[in-house]
Amino acid sequence: MDMVGQTRRDGLSRREAPRYGTIFLLAVSFFMVVFSLYGAQASVFEKARESVIDTFEPVLTVVGAPVRWTQRRVGDVQDYFRLAAENERLRQENAELRSWMHEALNLREQLAYYETILDTKLPEPAAYVDARVIGENGGPYQQALILSAGGGDGVRNGSAVIDESGLLGHVVTTGAKASRVLLVTDFNARTPVYIEGFGAEALLAGRSTGRPVIEFFAERPQDAIPPGARVVTSGAGGLLPRGIPVGQVAGTSGGTITVDLYADTRSSDLVRIVDYAFPQDVDEDSGAAEQRTSLDG
C-alpha cells in the first residue's frame, strides 16, 4: 500500500491551497487573447515588443553563443566528411555559373545600351544591411526570426529580408538594436509576387508549413502554371522592390499552387535587410510641363 501512496495523497489533498489566483490570471490571459483579436497591432503593444527585443538582444546573443559555436564545429566536421562530394558539386555549379555569368554580362551591356538610347530614369539601387539571426520562434505557429540589427542600423518596418538564395520575409518590429522578421511561411504572411512567363500577379500566403501557396487576387491565368515556374516579388504596394527571387512553383494540388522557396527558412544564419525606398518624389513642375507640351502638340 505504501507504493500506492494513498495515505500520503490523502494528507496532501487536505493541504491543497485554493487556486483562485490561477483562475483569475487565466481569465486575464483569455481576456488579453480576445483583446488581441481587435488590437494586436495597437501601438502600445508594438512599443512593448520593440522594448523587449531591444532589452533581450544582448541576452539572446550571449545565450545563443555556445549553440552557434557548437553548430559551427558540427558543420566543420560534416564538411570534412563530405569534402569530395562537395568539391564535385561545387565544380559543376561553378561551370554552370560561368556560362550564366557570360550571358549576364552580355545582357548587362545590351541593357545599358537600351537605357542610354531610351534615356531611362532608373530608381536608386537598394542598399543592404547585414545582420545575424540571434533568435527564432520555437513555437509551432509563429514563424519569425530576431535579427541583430535595428532602427539604429537603418532597418525599417516592411523592409525585405533575404538570404543568399532569396526572400525570407519582411521586418514587422523594429527596435533600436534588434528587429523581428515575419517569415513568408508564417500563416499571417502575405507577399505580393509575380509569376514569370505568365504575367500573373498574386499573393504568396504562408501556411505554417515549409511551402507557402499562391493566392490570385485577379483572374487566374488561362494556361496551367507548370512546376518550375519562377516566382519573384512584384513590388505591389511599394514595400518590397520588384524582382527579388522568392521560389519556384512546386506543383498544383486540388487547385492550390504550392511554392518551393529558394531561401532556407530553417537554417539561415546571416541575412541581408533590403533598405529600399519606393520612388515617391515626383517632380510636379516637370510633370505638368510635359502634360502641357503633349496637349499643345
Binding site: 494586436a40 523587449v52 520562434n137
Partner: peptide, 15 residues
C-alpha cells in the same frame, strides 16, 4: 512579447 505574437496566448496555455 519575444515571439511578437498576440498577447495572452502563452500565459493562457501555461496557466
Amino acid at each position: 512579447l519575444l515571439y511578437g505574437g498576440p498577447l495572452g496566448v502563452w500565459p493562457s496555455v501555461y496557466l
